[in-house]
Design a protein around this nucleic acid. Structure first.
Lengths: 146, 146
DNA sequence: CAGAGTGAGTTGGAATATCCAACTGATGGG
DNA sequence: CCCATCAGTTGGATATTCCAACTCACTCTG
């Protein structure tokens, strides 16, 4: 008998669940555009640079998963645009943390896109503990169950 | 002359920069495993469920981008494992916000993996404004330049 | 009213990437 | 010696992506 196939038992994990929905080359860029209030197919194509057919299938997938909705904005001729659902808007923390990481650890130079917070300053994302409200520091998390 | 090719001018954007590095099916799962202190190739294969060859090329790419490092942990036989660099550890906000989104908006049921914060409670990520410290609410951001 | 333009996609085919199972190479242990 | 372990690599089938051109349903302009 040859070597038995190596056991792979993928971790049961909500990060993997999330990535099943938005973990490809284009989906998060689509969500970004909707976040930036660019709702039309043509704008999404232009601003992401993705292939039209792939973006069309991603948009369908995101609609299926309830992340965005497809809305008719013209009867004649029939025309559609896309909007974030609550589920889609809930991705903003992911986009904002990715944006910060890309800015600080990938790009050298300035970030051409900026968000301003209602407090009057540029918005830079910081992750806090919902329970105690403190900003997350190094070595403050322990994995359970170990 | 036929129709001129539609202009696509991809947005100059640090989210896209970040996704160039970790925006594929496996990279963030690799980072997750290192975050969970599983450093060995075999463990990464087992826990992500990804194909060995793809994971090998992803690991190389992540090393090239300075997200992880490849460390020899045995001379004879030569064996290597992977560790997060500071740049890689800086991805924790992305993983933690993705984890929360996957938990609340994709999975139905409980999250089998949990983090405990030093404050004594389960860690649930919440994005705050670095400048004012307040938790981000709906409609608090404006895009600049508009 | 013909022809050009707009917007949201679809189509066909080539290029590329993924996935899988089996294999390699270095070594230690029984 | 033979088997096991670990970190990958290899070859080949399958699937996905990418690209340019096209469609459809109109409207607008001369």
């Amino acid at each position: 008998m040859p070597t038995a196939p190596a056991e792979t038992t993928p971790r049961d994990c909500t990060i993997a669940d999330a990535l099943d929905v938005v973990g490809d080359r284009w989906s998060l860029l689509v969500v970004r555009e909707l976040f930036y209030a660019q709702r039309r197919f043509t704008e999404i194509v232009r601003n992401t640079g993705g292939p039209r057919d792939i973006l069309a299938t991603r948009l369908r997938k995101l609609v299926e998963h309830g992340v965005i909705s497809r809305v008719q904005y013209s009867e004649r001729p029939p025309r559609y645009e896309y909007r974030l659902t609550d589920r889609g808007r809930a991705l903003s923390p992911v986009l904002l943390t990715l944006k910060r990481w890309g800015h600080e650890h990938v790009r050298n130079g300035t970030d051409p896109v900026r968000f301003d917070h209602t407090c009057g300053h540029e918005f830079v994302a910081e992750v806090h503990c919902t329970a105690c409200g403190d900003a997350l520091g190094l070595g403050q998390l322990t994995l359970e169950p170990h």
